[in-house]
Simulated assay, not measured.
Amino acid sequence: MSVLLVIPARYQSVRYPGKPLVSLKGPDGDKTLIMRSWQAAKAVRGIDRVVVATDDVRIRDHAQSFGAEVVMTSTTAQNGTERCAEVAEALPGFDVVVNLQGDAPLTPAWFVEDLVAGLRAAPEADIATPVLRCDGRALNGFLADRRAGRVGGTTAVFGAGMRGLYFSKEVIPFTGQVYADDQPTPVFHHVGVYAYRHAALRAYPAWPIGPLEALEGLEQLRFLENGRQVLCVEVDGKGRVFWELNNPSDVPVIEAALAAQA
């Protein structure tokens, strides 16, 4: 099963314009966000090709300067999945396309490896995505964020065979219980990494945005709203900090995690 890994990266982020080119300090010096994301992608085993997908020449030129292959995509792509679909059209011949988002340089390599293995073991699934079981500390943090009107993360619920039922920026399922910080809970945090079968990904841009995707702002809901099977793969964080760079305030958090991993 041949695998293409795509790193979508756009300059015009609403919350943080230009963030792919933001510099992040680490034990190995200062490197941009897109370079660290590319290095994370290159560490994944079993990947046949890695490309950066962007619509901005500044990101293209910078990525090419450190040796990354770049595919230019349109400015009309509404999310990373649509950008990956454009790459799949431009680079046919791969069975699976992985979307490793360009703002998540802390993504462990085994998350992606587990997704690809999950698709191999579940031929009925169209897409695979990782979920992490929340402990009490994480769940309480999510609940505190919601009470304060903030989105602390996306949660997922799934049924038999780990088949995804729904994803939400609300905390689901409702438990009504209080958990100790280190106590496992029935709530799962969704991690925004995806492995798509080629046919499902190519079909995605032609589907209209459904009401659930529009309300939640979650691109994976388009698959569910069109009857496609989403496989949730439980992954082990192994004590690693997982954090995406969405706002300037996330920079010191990621830099601290890079230092800790060293």
Rank of each mutant, 00 (worst) to 15 (best):
S2N: 11
L4M: 06
L5N: 12
Q12G: 13
S13K: 10
S13F: 15
S23E: 12
S23R: 09
G26T: 03
P27M: 03
P27T: 02
K31E: 12
L33A: 08
I34D: 05
I34Q: 03
S37G: 05
Q39D: 09
Q39H: 06
A43F: 04
A43S: 14
V44H: 05
R49H: 15
V51A: 07
A53E: 11
D55G: 15
D55T: 02
D55M: 12
D55Q: 14
D56R: 13
V57C: 10
V57L: 14
I59W: 14
S65T: 10
G67N: 09
A68E: 02
V70C: 09
V71D: 12
V71T: 10
V71I: 13
T73H: 14
T76R: 15
T76V: 05
G80E: 02
E82S: 04
C84P: 09
E86W: 06
E89V: 02
A90Y: 02
P92F: 06
G93S: 11
G93K: 06
F94H: 15
V96L: 06
L100Y: 08
Q101M: 08
D103H: 12
P105S: 05
W110L: 03
D114P: 01
A117D: 11
G118E: 04
G118T: 10
A121S: 15
P123K: 12
P123S: 13
A125T: 10
D126W: 11
A128E: 08
T129R: 03
D135R: 08
D135K: 07
A138C: 04
A138N: 01
A144D: 11
D145P: 00
R147W: 11
G149D: 07
V151N: 06
V151G: 01
A156N: 05
V157Q: 14
G161R: 11
G161V: 11
G161I: 10
G161C: 12
M162G: 10
R163S: 15
G164W: 00
F167P: 01
S168W: 01
I172E: 00
Y179W: 15
Q183R: 13
Q183T: 13
V187G: 03
F188Q: 01
H190N: 05
V191R: 00
G192K: 00
V193E: 06
Y194N: 11
H198K: 14
H198L: 09
R202L: 15
R202S: 14
P205V: 00
P208R: 05
G210A: 04
L212Y: 01
L212Q: 04
E216L: 03
G217W: 02
L218F: 01
R222A: 00
E225N: 07
N226A: 07
Q229A: 15
C232V: 03
E234W: 02
E234M: 06
V235T: 05
D236A: 04
K238E: 15
G239Y: 09
G239K: 04
V241Y: 00
W243R: 09
E244R: 03
N247M: 09
N247C: 04
P248C: 08
P248S: 04
S249Y: 09
V251C: 12
V251Q: 10
V251M: 13
P252V: 15
I254W: 09
E255H: 06
A256G: 04
A256N: 10
L258S: 05
A262C: 08
